[in-house]
Write a protein that binds this DNA or RNA. Sequence first.
RNA 1: GGAGAGGUGGCUGAGUGGUCGAAAGCUCCGGUUUGCUAAAUCGGUGUACGAGUCAAAUUGUACCGCAGGUUCGAAUCCUGUCCUCUCCGCCA
Length: 427
Amino acid sequence: MLDRKFVVENIDLIAKNCVDRGVKVDVSKLPELEAARKAKLQEAEQLNAKANKLSKTIGKASAEERPAIIEEGKQIRAQKDEASAEQDRLEAEIDDIMRQIPNLTHPAAPIGVDDKDNLELSRGVTEPRQFDFPVLDHVEIGENLDLIDFEAGAHVAGNGFYFLKNEAVLLELALQQYVVQLLMKEGFTPTITPDLARTEILYGIGFNPRGPETQIYSIENTDLNLVATAEITLGGMKSGKVFEAENLPEHYCGVSHCYRTEAGAAGRASRGLYRVHQFTKVEMFAFTLPEDSEATLEKFRDLECRIFDGLEVPYRVVDTSTGDLGGPAYRKYDLEAWMPGRGEAGEYGEVTSTSNCTDYQARRLNIRYKNKGEKGTHFVHTLNGTAIALSRGIIAVLENHQQADGSITIPEVLRPYMGMDVIPARG
RNA sequence: GGAGAGGUGGCUGAGUGGUCGAAAGCUCCGGUUUGCUAAAUCGGUGUACGAGUCAAAUUGUACCGCAGGUUCGAAUCCUGUCCUCUCCGCCA
Protein backbone atom coordinates (compact mmCIF):
# COMPACT_ATOMS: atom_id res chain seq x y z
CA MET A 1 0.00 0.00 0.00
CA LEU A 2 1.24 3.44 -0.91
CA ASP A 3 0.70 6.63 1.02
CA ARG A 4 -2.67 7.97 0.04
CA LYS A 5 -1.71 11.59 0.13
CA PHE A 6 1.25 10.91 -2.12
CA VAL A 7 -0.93 9.02 -4.59
CA VAL A 8 -3.50 11.78 -4.79
CA GLU A 9 -0.85 14.43 -5.29
CA ASN A 10 1.04 12.44 -7.92
CA ILE A 11 -1.76 10.79 -9.77
CA ASP A 12 -0.11 10.96 -13.21
CA LEU A 13 3.06 9.37 -11.94
CA ILE A 14 1.01 6.62 -10.29
CA ALA A 15 -1.01 6.01 -13.44
CA LYS A 16 2.17 5.65 -15.49
CA ASN A 17 3.73 3.35 -12.92
CA CYS A 18 0.66 1.11 -13.06
CA VAL A 19 1.02 0.89 -16.84
CA ASP A 20 4.72 0.04 -16.56
CA ARG A 21 3.90 -2.62 -14.01
CA GLY A 22 1.17 -4.09 -16.16
CA VAL A 23 -1.48 -3.43 -13.51
CA LYS A 24 -4.89 -2.51 -14.86
CA VAL A 25 -6.48 -0.18 -12.36
CA ASP A 26 -8.26 3.12 -12.86
CA VAL A 27 -6.71 5.61 -10.50
CA SER A 28 -8.08 8.74 -12.19
CA LYS A 29 -11.07 9.04 -9.85
CA LEU A 30 -8.97 8.89 -6.71
CA PRO A 31 -8.34 12.60 -6.10
CA GLU A 32 -12.03 13.34 -6.40
CA LEU A 33 -13.08 10.44 -4.20
CA GLU A 34 -10.55 11.34 -1.56
CA ALA A 35 -11.66 14.97 -1.49
CA ALA A 36 -15.26 13.88 -1.06
CA ARG A 37 -14.28 11.46 1.67
CA LYS A 38 -12.38 14.07 3.61
CA ALA A 39 -15.31 16.48 3.39
CA LYS A 40 -17.63 13.83 4.78
CA LEU A 41 -15.18 12.94 7.49
CA GLN A 42 -14.94 16.52 8.61
CA GLU A 43 -18.68 16.88 8.57
CA ALA A 44 -19.01 13.78 10.75
CA GLU A 45 -16.29 14.96 13.11
CA GLN A 46 -17.87 18.35 13.55
CA LEU A 47 -21.26 16.84 14.30
CA ASN A 48 -19.64 14.47 16.72
CA ALA A 49 -17.82 17.29 18.45
CA LYS A 50 -21.09 19.12 18.83
CA ALA A 51 -22.80 16.06 20.26
CA ASN A 52 -19.91 15.35 22.61
CA LYS A 53 -20.07 18.84 23.97
CA LEU A 54 -23.79 18.56 24.49
CA SER A 55 -23.48 15.20 26.20
CA LYS A 56 -21.15 16.64 28.75
CA THR A 57 -23.78 19.12 29.85
CA ILE A 58 -26.27 16.35 30.59
CA GLY A 59 -24.47 15.16 33.67
CA LYS A 60 -24.87 18.55 35.28
CA ALA A 61 -28.31 19.33 33.94
CA SER A 62 -31.37 19.19 36.15
CA ALA A 63 -33.95 16.45 35.76
CA GLU A 64 -36.34 18.82 34.00
CA GLU A 65 -33.77 20.03 31.49
CA ARG A 66 -32.47 16.62 30.54
CA PRO A 67 -35.14 15.20 28.18
CA ALA A 68 -34.84 18.14 25.79
CA ILE A 69 -31.05 17.97 25.69
CA ILE A 70 -31.10 14.23 25.19
CA GLU A 71 -33.51 14.62 22.30
CA GLU A 72 -31.27 17.18 20.65
CA GLY A 73 -28.25 14.95 21.14
CA LYS A 74 -30.05 12.06 19.47
CA GLN A 75 -30.73 14.17 16.43
CA ILE A 76 -27.15 15.31 16.11
CA ARG A 77 -25.88 11.75 16.42
CA ALA A 78 -28.30 10.65 13.72
CA GLN A 79 -26.90 13.26 11.36
CA LYS A 80 -23.39 12.23 12.30
CA ASP A 81 -24.17 8.57 11.60
CA GLU A 82 -25.39 9.51 8.15
CA ALA A 83 -22.25 11.46 7.30
CA SER A 84 -20.03 8.79 8.70
CA ALA A 85 -21.79 6.01 6.76
CA GLU A 86 -21.11 7.96 3.57
CA GLN A 87 -17.51 8.39 4.64
CA ASP A 88 -17.21 4.64 5.19
CA ARG A 89 -18.61 3.91 1.75
CA LEU A 90 -16.11 6.25 0.09
CA GLU A 91 -13.31 4.84 2.20
CA ALA A 92 -14.10 1.31 1.03
CA GLU A 93 -14.15 2.41 -2.58
CA ILE A 94 -10.83 4.21 -2.24
CA ASP A 95 -9.23 1.36 -0.36
CA ASP A 96 -10.26 -1.08 -3.03
CA ILE A 97 -8.37 0.97 -5.63
CA MET A 98 -5.45 1.73 -3.32
CA ARG A 99 -4.69 -1.90 -2.61
CA GLN A 100 -4.44 -2.68 -6.30
CA ILE A 101 -1.79 -0.03 -6.86
CA PRO A 102 1.69 -1.57 -6.89
CA ASN A 103 4.73 -0.06 -5.23
CA LEU A 104 6.73 2.65 -6.94
CA THR A 105 9.59 1.48 -9.12
CA HIS A 106 13.30 2.05 -8.80
CA PRO A 107 14.37 4.32 -11.69
CA ALA A 108 17.00 1.82 -12.79
CA ALA A 109 14.62 -1.13 -13.03
CA PRO A 110 14.20 -2.17 -16.67
CA ILE A 111 10.79 -1.39 -18.14
CA GLY A 112 9.20 -4.48 -19.60
CA VAL A 113 6.28 -6.84 -19.56
CA ASP A 114 7.69 -10.10 -18.18
CA ASP A 115 10.81 -12.04 -17.26
CA LYS A 116 12.07 -11.93 -20.86
CA ASP A 117 12.74 -8.24 -20.30
CA ASN A 118 14.88 -8.82 -17.22
CA LEU A 119 18.33 -7.31 -17.50
CA GLU A 120 21.37 -9.46 -16.85
CA LEU A 121 23.71 -7.77 -14.37
CA SER A 122 26.40 -10.28 -13.54
CA ARG A 123 27.47 -13.92 -13.47
CA GLY A 124 28.76 -16.18 -10.76
CA VAL A 125 32.38 -17.23 -10.39
CA THR A 126 31.70 -20.79 -11.52
CA GLU A 127 31.64 -21.35 -15.29
CA PRO A 128 29.08 -23.78 -16.72
CA ARG A 129 30.83 -27.11 -17.16
CA GLN A 130 31.56 -28.72 -20.51
CA PHE A 131 30.23 -32.24 -20.08
CA ASP A 132 31.89 -35.04 -22.01
CA PHE A 133 29.07 -37.45 -21.29
CA PRO A 134 25.29 -37.33 -21.74
CA VAL A 135 23.88 -34.96 -19.14
CA LEU A 136 20.98 -36.16 -17.02
CA ASP A 137 18.39 -33.95 -15.46
CA HIS A 138 17.65 -34.11 -11.75
CA VAL A 139 14.60 -36.30 -12.25
CA GLU A 140 16.71 -38.98 -13.93
CA ILE A 141 19.47 -38.55 -11.40
CA GLY A 142 16.96 -38.76 -8.57
CA GLU A 143 15.60 -41.97 -9.99
CA ASN A 144 18.97 -43.58 -10.71
CA LEU A 145 20.31 -42.84 -7.26
CA ASP A 146 16.99 -43.40 -5.47
CA LEU A 147 16.97 -39.86 -4.12
CA ILE A 148 13.54 -38.53 -5.04
CA ASP A 149 10.26 -40.43 -5.22
CA PHE A 150 7.67 -38.43 -7.15
CA GLU A 151 5.40 -41.41 -7.53
CA ALA A 152 5.06 -41.85 -3.80
CA GLY A 153 4.46 -38.13 -3.39
CA ALA A 154 1.67 -38.22 -5.94
CA HIS A 155 0.28 -41.32 -4.29
CA VAL A 156 -0.17 -39.73 -0.89
CA ALA A 157 -0.72 -36.07 -1.75
CA GLY A 158 -1.11 -35.71 -5.49
CA ASN A 159 0.95 -34.37 -8.33
CA GLY A 160 3.49 -31.79 -7.19
CA PHE A 161 4.49 -33.60 -4.03
CA TYR A 162 7.49 -35.84 -3.56
CA PHE A 163 9.54 -37.78 -1.07
CA LEU A 164 13.20 -36.97 -0.69
CA LYS A 165 15.09 -40.17 0.11
CA ASN A 166 18.48 -41.37 1.19
CA GLU A 167 21.31 -38.88 0.48
CA ALA A 168 18.85 -36.30 -0.82
CA VAL A 169 17.65 -35.95 2.76
CA LEU A 170 21.20 -35.32 3.93
CA LEU A 171 21.67 -32.91 1.06
CA GLU A 172 18.60 -30.90 2.00
CA LEU A 173 19.66 -30.75 5.65
CA ALA A 174 23.25 -29.93 4.69
CA LEU A 175 22.12 -27.06 2.49
CA GLN A 176 20.05 -25.69 5.35
CA GLN A 177 22.98 -25.92 7.74
CA TYR A 178 25.37 -24.33 5.29
CA VAL A 179 23.07 -21.40 4.63
CA VAL A 180 21.91 -20.79 8.19
CA GLN A 181 25.48 -20.96 9.48
CA LEU A 182 26.59 -18.49 6.85
CA LEU A 183 23.76 -16.08 7.66
CA MET A 184 24.32 -16.29 11.40
CA LYS A 185 27.89 -15.19 10.83
CA GLU A 186 26.47 -12.21 8.95
CA GLY A 187 24.40 -11.16 11.94
CA PHE A 188 21.06 -12.66 11.00
CA THR A 189 18.89 -13.94 13.81
CA PRO A 190 17.93 -17.45 12.74
CA THR A 191 14.36 -18.63 13.19
CA ILE A 192 12.18 -21.55 12.28
CA THR A 193 8.81 -20.01 11.60
CA PRO A 194 5.20 -21.17 11.71
CA ASP A 195 4.08 -22.74 8.45
CA LEU A 196 0.62 -21.20 8.87
CA ALA A 197 -0.42 -17.59 9.15
CA ARG A 198 -3.56 -15.54 9.54
CA THR A 199 -5.26 -14.11 6.51
CA GLU A 200 -4.70 -10.59 7.82
CA ILE A 201 -0.95 -11.14 7.85
CA LEU A 202 -1.03 -12.48 4.30
CA TYR A 203 -2.82 -9.36 3.15
CA GLY A 204 -0.29 -7.17 4.87
CA ILE A 205 2.60 -8.81 3.07
CA GLY A 206 0.74 -8.49 -0.20
CA PHE A 207 -0.72 -11.94 -0.78
CA ASN A 208 -4.34 -12.48 -1.56
CA PRO A 209 -5.34 -15.81 -0.02
CA ARG A 210 -8.83 -15.96 -1.51
CA GLY A 211 -10.02 -15.93 -5.08
CA PRO A 212 -9.34 -18.04 -8.15
CA GLU A 213 -5.84 -16.66 -8.82
CA THR A 214 -4.53 -17.40 -5.36
CA GLN A 215 -1.28 -19.25 -4.81
CA ILE A 216 -2.24 -19.93 -1.23
CA TYR A 217 -3.75 -22.98 0.44
CA SER A 218 -6.28 -22.04 3.11
CA ILE A 219 -7.38 -24.18 6.01
CA GLU A 220 -11.10 -24.73 5.94
CA ASN A 221 -13.20 -23.20 8.74
CA THR A 222 -10.28 -21.22 10.11
CA ASP A 223 -8.55 -17.95 9.48
CA LEU A 224 -5.32 -19.77 8.70
CA ASN A 225 -3.37 -20.33 5.52
CA LEU A 226 -0.33 -22.38 4.65
CA VAL A 227 2.48 -19.94 4.02
CA ALA A 228 4.01 -19.64 0.56
CA THR A 229 7.23 -18.26 2.05
CA ALA A 230 8.61 -17.32 5.46
CA GLU A 231 8.53 -13.74 4.21
CA ILE A 232 4.91 -13.81 5.37
CA THR A 233 5.66 -14.88 8.90
CA LEU A 234 8.89 -12.92 9.30
CA GLY A 235 7.24 -9.69 8.19
CA GLY A 236 4.07 -10.46 10.11
CA MET A 237 6.10 -11.11 13.25
CA LYS A 238 6.54 -7.36 13.73
CA SER A 239 3.19 -6.10 12.49
CA GLY A 240 1.88 -3.25 14.62
CA LYS A 241 5.30 -2.75 16.24
CA VAL A 242 7.26 0.46 16.63
CA PHE A 243 11.05 0.09 16.52
CA GLU A 244 13.50 2.48 18.10
CA ALA A 245 15.51 3.87 15.20
CA GLU A 246 18.75 3.01 16.98
CA ASN A 247 17.80 -0.68 17.03
CA LEU A 248 17.47 -0.88 13.25
CA PRO A 249 18.29 -2.67 11.11
CA GLU A 250 17.09 -6.06 12.26
CA HIS A 251 18.00 -9.02 10.10
CA TYR A 252 16.26 -12.38 10.39
CA CYS A 253 16.44 -15.59 8.50
CA GLY A 254 13.65 -18.11 8.69
CA VAL A 255 13.42 -21.75 7.77
CA SER A 256 9.94 -22.80 6.74
CA HIS A 257 8.04 -25.05 4.46
CA CYS A 258 6.41 -23.25 1.57
CA TYR A 259 3.13 -24.28 0.04
CA ARG A 260 1.92 -23.07 -3.32
CA THR A 261 -1.12 -24.11 -5.30
CA GLU A 262 0.59 -23.06 -8.56
CA ALA A 263 -2.82 -22.20 -9.96
CA GLY A 264 -2.50 -21.17 -13.57
CA ALA A 265 1.01 -22.60 -13.83
CA ALA A 266 -0.05 -25.47 -16.08
CA GLY A 267 2.31 -25.80 -19.02
CA ARG A 268 5.10 -23.76 -17.42
CA ALA A 269 8.37 -25.48 -16.68
CA SER A 270 7.20 -27.94 -14.11
CA ARG A 271 9.23 -31.08 -14.48
CA GLY A 272 10.52 -32.63 -11.31
CA LEU A 273 11.31 -30.43 -8.34
CA TYR A 274 11.23 -27.15 -10.23
CA ARG A 275 7.61 -26.24 -9.56
CA VAL A 276 6.16 -28.15 -6.64
CA HIS A 277 3.38 -27.58 -4.13
CA GLN A 278 5.65 -27.92 -1.13
CA PHE A 279 9.29 -27.16 -0.55
CA THR A 280 11.57 -25.91 2.18
CA LYS A 281 13.18 -22.53 2.07
CA VAL A 282 15.57 -20.41 4.07
CA GLU A 283 14.43 -16.83 3.75
CA MET A 284 16.21 -13.60 4.67
CA PHE A 285 14.23 -10.66 5.94
CA ALA A 286 15.23 -7.19 7.10
CA PHE A 287 13.58 -4.23 8.74
CA THR A 288 15.62 -1.12 7.97
CA LEU A 289 15.60 2.64 8.04
CA PRO A 290 14.47 4.07 4.68
CA GLU A 291 17.95 5.36 3.87
CA ASP A 292 19.46 1.89 4.38
CA SER A 293 17.16 -0.23 2.25
CA GLU A 294 18.97 0.14 -1.05
CA ALA A 295 22.27 -0.92 0.49
CA THR A 296 20.53 -3.82 2.21
CA LEU A 297 19.16 -5.03 -1.11
CA GLU A 298 22.72 -5.10 -2.46
CA LYS A 299 23.81 -6.99 0.64
CA PHE A 300 21.08 -9.60 0.16
CA ARG A 301 22.03 -9.97 -3.47
CA ASP A 302 25.66 -10.40 -2.51
CA LEU A 303 24.78 -13.06 0.06
CA GLU A 304 22.76 -14.99 -2.49
CA CYS A 305 25.72 -14.86 -4.85
CA ARG A 306 28.10 -16.04 -2.16
CA ILE A 307 25.82 -18.94 -1.30
CA PHE A 308 25.73 -20.18 -4.88
CA ASP A 309 29.40 -19.43 -5.52
CA GLY A 310 30.08 -21.60 -2.49
CA LEU A 311 27.99 -24.38 -3.97
CA GLU A 312 30.04 -24.10 -7.18
CA VAL A 313 26.90 -23.57 -9.19
CA PRO A 314 26.99 -21.21 -12.20
CA TYR A 315 24.36 -18.49 -12.22
CA ARG A 316 23.46 -15.09 -13.51
CA VAL A 317 21.84 -12.19 -11.69
CA VAL A 318 19.07 -10.26 -13.37
CA ASP A 319 17.42 -6.94 -12.60
CA THR A 320 13.72 -7.77 -12.71
CA SER A 321 11.65 -5.86 -15.23
CA THR A 322 8.68 -3.74 -14.19
CA GLY A 323 6.13 -6.21 -15.49
CA ASP A 324 7.61 -9.00 -13.39
CA LEU A 325 8.07 -7.19 -10.09
CA GLY A 326 4.77 -8.07 -8.46
CA GLY A 327 2.94 -5.65 -6.20
CA PRO A 328 5.19 -4.92 -3.19
CA ALA A 329 8.67 -4.77 -4.75
CA TYR A 330 10.36 -1.49 -5.57
CA ARG A 331 13.28 -3.32 -7.04
CA LYS A 332 14.03 -6.99 -7.34
CA TYR A 333 17.01 -9.11 -8.32
CA ASP A 334 16.62 -12.71 -9.34
CA LEU A 335 19.42 -15.16 -9.29
CA GLU A 336 19.11 -17.79 -12.01
CA ALA A 337 21.14 -20.92 -11.63
CA TRP A 338 22.47 -22.90 -14.54
CA MET A 339 20.58 -26.17 -14.78
CA PRO A 340 22.44 -28.28 -17.35
CA GLY A 341 19.73 -30.94 -17.45
CA ARG A 342 17.00 -28.51 -18.32
CA GLY A 343 15.70 -27.99 -21.84
CA GLU A 344 17.73 -29.03 -24.89
CA ALA A 345 21.22 -28.17 -23.63
CA GLY A 346 20.69 -26.58 -20.26
CA GLU A 347 18.89 -23.42 -19.22
CA TYR A 348 19.00 -20.86 -16.47
CA GLY A 349 16.24 -21.26 -13.88
CA GLU A 350 15.29 -18.89 -11.09
CA VAL A 351 16.59 -20.06 -7.72
CA THR A 352 16.45 -16.97 -5.57
CA SER A 353 14.90 -13.57 -5.58
CA THR A 354 15.46 -10.56 -3.40
CA SER A 355 13.23 -7.52 -3.16
CA ASN A 356 13.28 -4.10 -1.63
CA CYS A 357 9.67 -3.46 -0.70
CA THR A 358 10.43 -0.01 0.74
CA ASP A 359 7.52 1.02 2.99
CA TYR A 360 4.85 -0.76 0.93
CA GLN A 361 4.46 -3.74 3.24
CA ALA A 362 5.26 -1.76 6.38
CA ARG A 363 2.36 0.58 5.76
CA ARG A 364 -0.13 -2.24 5.56
CA LEU A 365 1.42 -4.16 8.41
CA ASN A 366 1.79 -0.94 10.40
CA ILE A 367 5.47 -1.45 11.21
CA ARG A 368 7.09 1.82 12.21
CA TYR A 369 10.13 3.29 13.89
CA LYS A 370 10.71 6.38 15.91
CA ASN A 371 13.75 8.51 16.46
CA LYS A 372 14.64 9.08 20.07
CA GLY A 373 13.46 12.44 21.33
CA GLU A 374 11.53 13.11 18.15
CA LYS A 375 7.80 13.35 17.87
CA GLY A 376 5.98 11.00 15.55
CA THR A 377 6.81 7.75 13.80
CA HIS A 378 7.81 6.66 10.31
CA PHE A 379 7.35 3.45 8.39
CA VAL A 380 10.30 1.09 8.21
CA HIS A 381 11.46 -0.45 4.97
CA THR A 382 11.22 -4.20 4.56
CA LEU A 383 13.34 -6.44 2.38
CA ASN A 384 13.21 -10.11 1.68
CA GLY A 385 15.43 -12.49 -0.15
CA THR A 386 15.67 -16.18 -0.74
CA ALA A 387 18.80 -17.54 0.86
CA ILE A 388 18.01 -20.91 -0.65
CA ALA A 389 14.92 -22.68 -1.90
CA LEU A 390 15.88 -26.25 -1.14
CA SER A 391 13.98 -27.87 -4.01
CA ARG A 392 15.65 -25.74 -6.66
CA GLY A 393 18.93 -25.75 -4.79
CA ILE A 394 18.92 -29.53 -4.97
CA ILE A 395 18.27 -29.41 -8.72
CA ALA A 396 21.25 -27.10 -9.17
CA VAL A 397 23.61 -29.21 -7.07
CA LEU A 398 22.62 -32.54 -8.56
CA GLU A 399 22.71 -31.42 -12.18
CA ASN A 400 25.91 -29.37 -11.99
CA HIS A 401 27.90 -31.86 -9.97
CA GLN A 402 26.93 -35.07 -11.73
CA GLN A 403 29.77 -37.31 -12.90
CA ALA A 404 30.14 -39.61 -15.86
CA ASP A 405 29.74 -42.69 -13.67
CA GLY A 406 26.41 -41.38 -12.34
CA SER A 407 27.72 -40.29 -8.98
CA ILE A 408 27.38 -36.79 -7.56
CA THR A 409 30.34 -34.87 -6.19
CA ILE A 410 29.38 -32.94 -3.08
CA PRO A 411 30.53 -29.29 -3.09
CA GLU A 412 33.29 -28.66 -0.59
CA VAL A 413 31.18 -26.39 1.64
CA LEU A 414 28.55 -29.08 2.18
CA ARG A 415 30.86 -31.96 3.02
CA PRO A 416 31.09 -31.26 6.76
CA TYR A 417 27.29 -31.27 6.98
CA MET A 418 26.78 -34.20 4.59
CA GLY A 419 29.36 -36.43 6.16
CA MET A 420 30.42 -37.58 2.67
CA ASP A 421 32.24 -36.29 -0.38
CA VAL A 422 30.19 -38.02 -2.99
CA ILE A 423 26.80 -39.58 -3.52
CA PRO A 424 27.90 -42.87 -5.07
CA ALA A 425 26.36 -44.34 -8.18
CA ARG A 426 24.14 -47.32 -7.60
CA GLY A 427 24.81 -50.75 -8.89
C1' G B 1 -10.91 -30.54 24.09
C1' G B 2 -12.99 -29.01 29.43
C1' A B 3 -12.95 -25.31 33.72
C1' G B 4 -11.43 -20.65 35.41
C1' A B 5 -8.71 -15.71 35.28
C1' G B 6 -7.17 -11.76 32.48
C1' G B 7 -5.90 -8.30 28.16
C1' U B 8 -5.45 -0.29 30.02
C1' G B 9 -0.03 4.46 27.47
C1' G B 10 7.41 2.59 26.16
C1' C B 11 6.97 -0.41 31.11
C1' U B 12 4.43 -1.43 36.05
C1' G B 13 -0.42 -0.54 37.43
C1' A B 14 -5.32 2.30 39.19
C1' G B 15 -9.87 3.05 37.20
C1' U B 16 -17.29 -0.55 36.83
C1' G B 17 -21.74 4.64 32.77
C1' G B 18 -20.80 11.28 32.48
C1' U B 19 -15.86 16.66 32.50
C1' C B 20 -11.01 9.95 31.53
C1' G B 21 -6.36 10.36 26.78
C1' A B 22 -7.06 7.98 31.24
C1' A B 23 -4.37 8.26 38.73
C1' A B 24 0.37 6.91 40.61
C1' G B 25 5.22 5.14 39.81
C1' C B 26 9.18 4.01 36.35
C1' U B 27 11.62 5.16 31.75
C1' C B 28 12.80 9.13 28.59
C1' C B 29 13.56 14.61 27.50
C1' G B 30 14.54 19.60 29.42
C1' G B 31 15.59 23.03 33.61
C1' U B 32 17.57 23.97 38.67
C1' U B 33 21.12 22.45 42.31
C1' U B 34 25.97 19.95 43.25
C1' G B 35 33.49 20.93 41.93
C1' C B 36 32.47 16.05 38.56
C1' U B 37 29.45 11.58 38.90
C1' A B 38 25.44 9.98 41.66
C1' A B 39 21.39 11.93 44.22
C1' A B 40 17.67 15.65 44.92
C1' U B 41 14.06 18.85 42.83
C1' C B 42 10.77 21.27 39.10
C1' G B 43 8.47 20.85 34.38
C1' G B 44 7.42 18.06 30.10
C1' U B 45 6.74 13.24 27.90
C1' G B 46 1.28 8.33 23.46
C1' U B 47 -0.40 7.36 18.34
C1' A B 48 -3.24 8.34 13.87
C1' C B 49 -6.09 11.47 10.74
C1' G B 50 -7.72 16.58 10.15
C1' A B 51 -8.07 22.25 11.00
C1' G B 52 -4.56 26.14 11.84
C1' U B 53 0.54 28.57 11.12
C1' C B 54 6.12 30.52 7.13
C1' A B 55 6.97 27.49 11.31
C1' A B 56 4.88 27.23 16.07
C1' A B 57 1.16 28.13 19.56
C1' U B 58 -3.62 26.44 19.44
C1' U B 59 -7.51 23.15 18.11
C1' G B 60 -11.24 18.85 16.32
C1' U B 61 -11.98 13.57 15.99
C1' A B 62 -10.63 8.59 16.94
C1' C B 63 -7.89 5.01 19.79
C1' C B 64 -7.98 1.38 26.99
C1' G B 65 -6.57 -6.52 22.43
C1' C B 66 -9.96 -6.55 17.87
C1' A B 67 -15.05 -6.18 15.71
C1' G B 68 -19.98 -5.15 16.56
C1' G B 69 -24.15 -3.63 19.97
C1' U B 70 -26.86 -0.78 24.04
C1' U B 71 -26.89 4.62 25.48
C1' C B 72 -27.64 11.54 24.61
C1' G B 73 -22.86 9.65 26.59
C1' A B 74 -18.73 3.41 27.18
C1' A B 75 -11.98 1.88 29.33
C1' U B 76 -16.43 0.86 32.33
C1' C B 77 -22.61 -2.67 30.30
C1' C B 78 -23.85 -6.67 26.25
C1' U B 79 -22.36 -10.09 22.02
C1' G B 80 -18.72 -12.19 19.05
C1' U B 81 -13.63 -12.91 18.21
C1' C B 82 -8.28 -13.16 18.96
C1' C B 83 -4.51 -13.60 22.43
C1' U B 84 -2.22 -14.63 27.32
C1' C B 85 -2.09 -17.22 32.03
C1' U B 86 -3.62 -21.31 35.62
C1' C B 87 -5.72 -26.18 36.31
C1' C B 88 -7.60 -30.83 34.03
C1' G B 89 -7.61 -34.14 29.83
C1' C B 90 -5.02 -35.68 25.40
C1' C B 91 -0.55 -35.86 22.89
C1' A B 92 4.96 -35.38 19.85
